[in-house]
Amino acid sequence: MRKKLLKLVFCLTAFTVNLFAQINVVATLPWIGDIAKQIGKEKLSITVLVKTSQDPHYVEAKPSLIIAARKADILMYNGLDLEIGYLPVIIESSKNPNIQPGRPGNFDCSKFVSPIEKPTSVDRSMGDIHPLGNPHYHFSPLNVLKVAQGMTETLVKIDPQNENYYRKNYQEFYKKLQEKISEWKSKNLSGKKFVAYHTLFSYLANDFGFQIVGCIEAKPGIPPSSGEIKKIIDTINNTKPDAILVNVYSPKKPVEFVAGKTGLKTILVPHDVGSLPQTQDWFSFMDKVITLLSEG
């Protein structure tokens, strides 16, 4: 009888511990953290490494990020070399076996997407070009859906007890996305033309049928030279785009100069979830992006 009671108590405690134990997710970028939140909700405890004001290409492997990674059950990152300048150091220095490459806790979101703008040949005289393709696929609804699906499968693998929960949330996400896609398509961005500071909007342009006629930052990661600025001004005069698209971390001076010379207005577009007001989750972030561009 006592043995049985003990067994019962043991089972109960094990059960309650399981009930309240959250999976520790560390996401590099805010949008990744948000997708994880929509799939895992209260089953996950989510830490985001890169701040909404930061340029995700250039982040420092601060010890505070390393200690966050130390506690991760699963690390989710953008991939396509976007975080190459800091993430390898964070992963190794975390001394956390869960998130090492090859482990289920090392979740590269880009594995599930179809990259565009993959250069056929590349060297750094072209600037800090991403040889695996444009890494800013979080503007692309279908790619984000595939990431969400991959995330669901991985969470199921890591936490099979809550399989139905994750699948149900994914279904909700999927349904909401279906509705949103038709809403976004109805804003009719096709035929519009923009100039951007950085190659952030290529996926969006592909999906919604508008055109990016050029980038002020001619070589990724290197501020434009006066010759390059002259060239983009010529492009603007020839193609007559609707506006210049910038984000919170793009340098102001060259943008203001080009805007002043051409009379084009600039639109401050959120580059990630939470980087501007009313972008608290990925859907509202996309709402904001599409609205800003359609009004531009």
Binding site: K111, F112, L145, K146, Q149, G150, E153, Q171, Y174, Q178
Partner: peptide, 16 residues
Amino acid sequence: KAQTVSEKPPAQPEEK
């Protein structure tokens, strides 16, 4: 059902 009703069913996640 939900998947077949929608226009574009999500592809199986591919690991490239």
